[in-house]
Amino acid sequence: MDRSLLNTHAKLVARDIHCLTQSHTEPNSFSLIGGSASVSRVETVGTIVSRDLTPKFLKFDVDDGTGCVTCILWLNQLSSSYFSRWDPATILLLARAARKQAANIRIGAVARVRGRVGSYRGVMQITATVVVVERDPNAEILHWLECLRLGPSYRIQS
């Protein structure tokens, strides 16, 4: 398998994200059916259609016209044991950035989401690292066009 996409954000629509299958050899990588490239990080653009804020995370759904994908933005950097060995200044910056992103996520806004793709309870989701509310009214259609252009590089040609 081509490993070139493991450290990049593959541009995918929700339909393709839900079609990803987990690698048998690498637990944190996925591929499209018939795909030749492993994917661990994705980027998608769509309208935020739900928002559920808790003290630990913000869970929201992004609808891009091909389907909805659930996204999780973790907000517990200051209390999580995962970050306990990190530099305190870095943790504080991450926590502030996550809180600022969460405040901008509103139902009806068009957002670009980048993060690690994974399966939770059998459903694909994105653990978001960057969420940007798009101001360009063409952002979603431009993302679709990029997905069409890049799509063949994620699949085996027949």
Results as ranks from 00 to 15, higher is better:
Asp2Lys: 06
Asp2Gln: 00
Arg3His: 14
Arg3Ala: 15
Ser4Ile: 11
Leu5Ala: 03
Asn7Ala: 13
Asn7His: 11
Thr8Phe: 01
Thr8Lys: 05
His9Trp: 10
His9Met: 10
Ala10Asn: 00
Lys11Gln: 10
Leu12Arg: 02
Arg15Ile: 14
Asp16Pro: 03
His18Lys: 13
Cys19Gln: 15
Gln22Ala: 14
His24Met: 07
Thr25Cys: 06
Glu26Ile: 01
Glu26Asn: 06
Glu26Leu: 07
Pro27Ile: 10
Ser29Leu: 01
Phe30Trp: 08
Phe30Asp: 01
Ser31Arg: 03
Ser31Ile: 06
Leu32Pro: 08
Leu32Asp: 05
Ile33Leu: 12
Gly34Ala: 09
Ser36Pro: 05
Arg41Ala: 04
Arg41Met: 03
Val42Asp: 02
Thr44Gln: 03
Thr44Asn: 08
Ile48Gln: 04
Ile48Val: 15
Val49Lys: 03
Ser50Lys: 10
Ser50His: 12
Thr54His: 09
Thr54Ile: 08
Thr54Tyr: 04
Pro55Cys: 11
Lys56Ser: 11
Lys56Glu: 13
Phe57Asp: 09
Phe57Val: 13
Phe60Asp: 00
Phe60Ile: 03
Phe60Thr: 01
Asp61His: 13
Val62Phe: 04
Asp64Gln: 02
Asp64Thr: 01
Gly65Asp: 03
Gly65Gln: 06
Gly67Phe: 01
Val69Gln: 01
Val69Arg: 01
Ile72Asp: 06
Ile72His: 07
Ile72Gly: 02
Ile72Tyr: 04
Trp74His: 13
Trp74Pro: 07
Leu75Lys: 01
Leu75Ile: 13
Leu75Pro: 02
Leu78Gln: 13
Ser80Met: 12
Ser80Pro: 05
Ser81Pro: 13
Ser81Phe: 11
Phe83Gln: 09
Ser84Thr: 02
Trp86Gly: 00
Asp87Pro: 13
Asp87Val: 09
Pro88Ala: 10
Thr90Ser: 15
Thr90Asn: 14
Ile91Glu: 03
Ile91Pro: 00
Leu92Thr: 07
Ala95Trp: 01
Ala97Arg: 12
Ala98Trp: 00
Arg99Gly: 14
Lys100Gln: 08
Gln101Thr: 15
Ala102Gln: 12
Ala103Gln: 11
Ala103Gly: 08
Ile105Leu: 01
Ile107Cys: 06
Ile107Lys: 07
Ala109Ile: 04
Ala109Trp: 01
Val113Arg: 03
Val113Met: 05
Val113Trp: 04
Arg114Phe: 07
Arg114Asp: 00
Gly115Cys: 11
Arg116Met: 15
Gly118Phe: 07
Ser119Asn: 15
Tyr120Gln: 10
Arg121His: 12
Gly122Asn: 13
Gln125Lys: 07
Gln125Ala: 07
Ile126Met: 00
Thr127Glu: 05
Thr127Val: 08
Thr127Pro: 04
Thr129Leu: 12
Val130Asn: 03
Val131Ser: 03
Val133Asp: 04
Glu134His: 11
Asp136Pro: 00
Pro137Gln: 12
Pro137Val: 08
Glu140Gly: 11
Ile141Phe: 12
Ile141Ser: 10
Leu142Asn: 04
Leu142Met: 11
Trp144Asp: 06
Trp144Gly: 05
Glu146Asp: 15
Glu146Thr: 15
Cys147Trp: 08
Cys147Leu: 06
Cys147His: 14
Leu148Lys: 02
Leu148Ile: 11
Leu148Thr: 09
Ser153Met: 14
Tyr154Lys: 12
Tyr154Arg: 14
Tyr154Asn: 09
Arg155Pro: 05
Arg155Leu: 14
Arg155Gly: 04
Ile156Arg: 12
Ile156Tyr: 08
Ile156Ala: 12
Ser158Gly: 13
Ser158Arg: 12
